[in-house]
Design a binder for these strands. Structure first.
Lengths: 230, 230
DNA sequence: TAATTATAATAGTTTTACTATCATTGCAAA
DNA sequence: TTTGCAATGATAGTAAAACTATTATAATTA
């Protein structure tokens, strides 16, 4: 197997130093993912991260201004990576509808073939994004962050999906909102199935695969929403 | 005009003392709404609230354990109130589809006739919910909070909307997920139009009414998703 | 009027968030 | 090989946030 290098593209105002360029930085990212997954964003802080990775608080602060930016970095990394994955997974699919469905499958992360670097646990990062992505978007600083390019990776991904929607049904009036909506829903529905099942259609005690169910639900919605044209 | 009293129903593990039962408590809620709207949840704390309302930090702590619970309280209040509003606004609408559409209108808060108590600025509370509701749902303590009944008001609202969906199209396979989805989307889309327009279908510089646009977009989606049957 | 309760005023503790300083390490250019 | 320099570690410190405790006083209630 050839070693695969993915160079993710992340806006450089998110970090003070690019963590992916140093050994310590990659270690930081690795343990940030583990720790965030373990204790959640509210309990997470740089002191705990420093202890966990065997470094010091001061060193962490040399890479990121604060924990919000670290989270923003991980989320940006995730979306850039998912964008890449969607490109890979949907190549050579001639059927437009099948192509969009495959995008959804990639989104809910039911495909396990991600060529993810060893320092990132992709499943954990996925859960971190599910639980915390909205904290990056819903902040009073949204307009400033937007100008600084914090959200470009997510926007690119949404653009890609909305193009696929337009391909299927050029008359659909709100392709971008629908794309945003299914990305949001694919994250949330999986979370709700696990934690708040009464917000979904699976019975309380049913043993279902949250990813598969979510994928089916989104496909169903798209199937209804988009008019067949060949 | 008769004085209208709404008694909202909020799970009693959210607070230490019910703020709506005392003058100080109502003052607390009033200024919490103003201050949260002004500076956002991250910058908000009990010291600032105490100063703003002319009381002390200790007094605030007698009502709420911490700022997360205060936020949870406001969100629970909001959903219970919205549930009530949806009941009011959709009475005597015979057409099932029109009834669901009206629910969406009420959700995006385009109806301005809310009989809201004087100590709550409804438009500000709406924005607080848009910006912060996900912070109440996406936390590591979700399972405990769920057991304590933090989310029952939201669940009741979703139930009501999913029933309306089922009324229109009994064959729709995921009425609850769709209901959850349109509630989420109605909050988010309005926010995106204002702050991240490239996640929506409105052009960057377009001067549109975010609420009206959102309502139209959701109606359109529902119109496509739900099969006509009379 | 006495007892109870709510609040204000004050003062504290602990934790988090962040900054500063300086010694040490490793590596690269001279 | 030495010199210089950037990265890190070790340590210490400040400021604010997140809470807790104590007491005095005002307002209610019995």
């Amino acid at each position: 197997m050839p070693q695969i290098h993915i160079s993710v593209d992340i806006c450089d105002t998110i970090y003070l130093r690019d963590p992916l360029e140093t050994v310590l930085g990659r270690k930081m990212i690795k343990h940030a993912v583990i720790l965030l997954h373990e204790i959640g964003f509210e309990e997470f802080n740089f002191k705990k991260l420093a202890i966990r990775m065997g470094s010091t608080e001061a060193s962490v602060y040399r890479y990121f201004e604060n924990k919000y930016k670290l989270l923003a970095y991980l989320v940006a990394w995730y979306w850039d990576f998912m964008h890449f994955m969607i490109l890979m997974d949907t190549r050579n699919i001639p059927d437009k509808r099948e192509k969009l469905y495959r995008m959804v499958d990639t989104l809910v992360n039911s495909l396990k073939t991600a060529p993810v670097p060893e320092y990132i646990d992709h499943e954990k990062l996925h859960m971190i994004v599910v639980e915390n992505a909205s904290k990056v978007y819903h902040t009073k600083q949204v307009d400033r962050l937007q100008k600084e390019g914090f959200y470009t990776n997510f926007k690119k991904l949404v653009k890609r999906i909305s193009d696929a929607i337009r391909d299927i049904d050029p008359d659909y009036m709100y392709p971008v909102a629908l794309a945003t909506n299914i990305v949001d829903a694919s994250l949330n529905n999986e979370y709700y199935i696990e934690h708040l099942p009464s917000l979904t259609d699976v019975p309380e005690d049913a043993q279902v695969n949250a990813k598969t169910e979510t994928s089916k639900m989104i496909r169903y919605l798209l199937d209804r929403a988009l008019v067949r044209n060949g």
